[in-house]
Nucleic acid binder design. Structure first.
Lengths: 208, 208
DNA sequence: TGTCAATTGTCAGCGGCTGACACTAGCCTC
DNA sequence: GAGGCTAGTGTCAGCCGCTGACAATTGACA
């Protein structure tokens, strides 16, 4: 059973996030001040900063929900699965249940719109990429453990994860600049691109 | 022949950069204010912002010197070279002449120290990654042109470049956290890691 | 040398963010 | 259920990055 205090806090937290995302996706990130967000929730600016370390954190909070689930998903993949396959399955599986997770806070449509705001706002894109890097480091450790390797000694876990991350980034970008914003489109793109990585590295591009 | 005005401007520009890098590498990025930099060059804060769009730009200016040369190097690689090979050769070739380019502005040692500051300062690392992404996009277009492909239609150029970029990032990180900061160490790491990417993706890690 | 244009300094001000301190409101004990 | 305790909030002052506007200075060029 939750205490009243905790429920109140959670409500303010959610309200701030909703207000922030709403404003970011309509007015734009740069043109939204922290005061705007705080005012929308009828809270002091200082309080906003007690819930989120900064404007950036609020803007990336939704992504964070998805990302943490992804890491957990990889951890729970069967140990006999090959590294790249485990990563792939974890993402695809993640898309499936994305709806419920997001919808608990904001409409999925808002999440997708926010995603595009991140991709198109330099400072947010930068923060997003940095976060991805942290995730990749965590994933490398997970893979290394699965395979019984030492991350510091064997570069293969980090290399594999970096490649996977690279492909995902290309996929996301392609998806976010395309016309079909459905999850199904994302899924298809992911599978297709992952299949093409190997060939793209070794094969001669002109003979195909 | 350069005019006096232009020479003066260039001098201020260089002085600002030198002062900035000097301060960043000793005092740290966050703990250095723009006023500190401006004062060190005996110039108003406003003037600093006329030369550099922000603190960040000054911090990444040295990297920018290297990066632009890399793009140019790829462009001038023989057309018959395979894509990945062209990228690899361009980087390795770039390291060779790095000394002269950097030394024209600051001691190479300072450049290397600044590199570590970037890697260890969250906001700088983020900006750095974002810049890398822009470079990758440019590189993808170069590769596509070399091979006579349409970047928008064929994902292979972007995929190859993303993979290459991923490997380079892992390499850089490994290098910057290691003990040997020589260019030779970087070179060796790059070659070794590039060789291991293919196998890391397909082979079974446990049977080796 | 005097005019014109480029460069710089000064000033005022916004927005993100933080520390300090007082106040309010939920919690827990007696 | 009254009291004290503490977590959460608002207010205020202030730093820092950054920008626009305007005045002052300094090189360029006829």
């Amino acid at each position: 059973m939750e205490t009243l205090r905790e429920r109140k806090k959670q409500r303010t937290r959610d309200a701030l996030l909703r207000a922030a995302v709403e404003l970011f996706t309509t007015r734009g990130y740069e043109r939204t001040t922290v005061d705007d967000i705080a005012d929308a929730v009828d809270v002091s600016q200082r309080t906003f900063f007690r819930y989120y370390a900064g404007k950036e954190e609020a803007a990336l909070a939704l992504q964070e929900l998805v990302v943490t689930r992804f890491v957990a998903a990889v951890r729970e993949r069967p140990a006999e699965e090959a590294p790249m396959e485990a990563l792939k399955q974890a993402v695809l599986e993640g898309w499936q249940t994305l709806n419920e997770v997001i919808e608990a806070v904001v409409p999925v449509e808002l999440y997708l719109r926010m995603y595009r705001v991140i991709e198109s706002t330099p400072v947010l894109l930068a923060a997003h990429l940095r976060r991805n890097m942290e995730i990749e480091e965590a994933m490398a450790r997970v893979l290394a453990e699965r395979e019984g390797l030492d991350v510091e000694a064997d570069p293969r876990p980090r290399l594999a994860v970096a490649v996977f991350g690279g492909v995902m980034r290309v996929t996301e970008r392609q998806w976010s600049t395309g016309e079909d914003f459905s999850l199904e489109a994302m899924r298809a793109l992911t599978i297709s691109y992952l299949e093409q990585v190997g060939p793209a590295l070794t094969e001669n591009w002109r003979t195909r």
